[in-house]
């Protein structure tokens, strides 16, 4: 089922440059969907800072390695709400796989591995955020049995 040569692991210091590139590509892609996703002019440098913060930070950040090359990542933030019975929710904030490596189940594998880790942490639900107009993402998550859960609307202040 899974691609041979594919390895998923937590991001570490040696991934900094590659991770920064993936973060930048993820946000550049989202820029398509709404003016509110427009990037800061220093986005590339900021992506590098973010990569540094992600590595060893609080969020769950996993790297997909394919034939020893970093080809994708996932970042999950665990949000708390103690009035809810479930208490904690894992939210996929970022997920990106380099185009030449798509269609091999790498994104699904990243989610599966992350979900396992969330389970170990006692988190009962995982959700995914993506731009409302990204119908490809919608199709992808639906195919993985995600269901519509939360709507987010936006306007200019």
């Amino acid at each position: 089922m899974y691609e041979p040569g594919l390895y998923v692991r937590p991001a570490s210091e040696k991934d900094l440059e590659r991770l920064a590139k993936l973060i930048y590509r993820f946000y550049s892609f989202n820029e398509e969907f709404d003016p509110a996703w427009a990037l800061d002019e220093d986005a590339e440098a900021i992506a590098r800072e973010l990569a540094g913060e992600y590595i060893g930070g609080e969020d769950l950040v996993l790297i997909a390695e394919y034939d020893n090359e970093v080809v994708g990542y996932i970042r999950i933030v665990v949000e708390e709400n103690r009035i809810l019975a479930s208490k904690r929710l894992g939210v996929i904030k970022e997920l990106y796989v380099l185009p030449p490596f798509r269609g091999r189940g790498i994104a699904s594998r990243l989610i599966a591995e992350a979900q396992e880790r969330l389970g170990d942490m006692g988190v009962k639900h995982v959700s995914a955020e993506f731009p409302a107009a990204n119908y490809v993402a919608e199709r992808f998550y639906r195919a993985l049995s995600f269901r519509p859960y939360l709507s987010m609307y936006l306007r200019e202040v």
Binding site: P99, P100, V136
Partner: peptide
Amino acid sequence: PHRDDIDKLMISNQ
């Protein structure tokens, strides 16, 4: 697959 606009194509022209 390495084109700059490949992600855009995914949405605009699958």
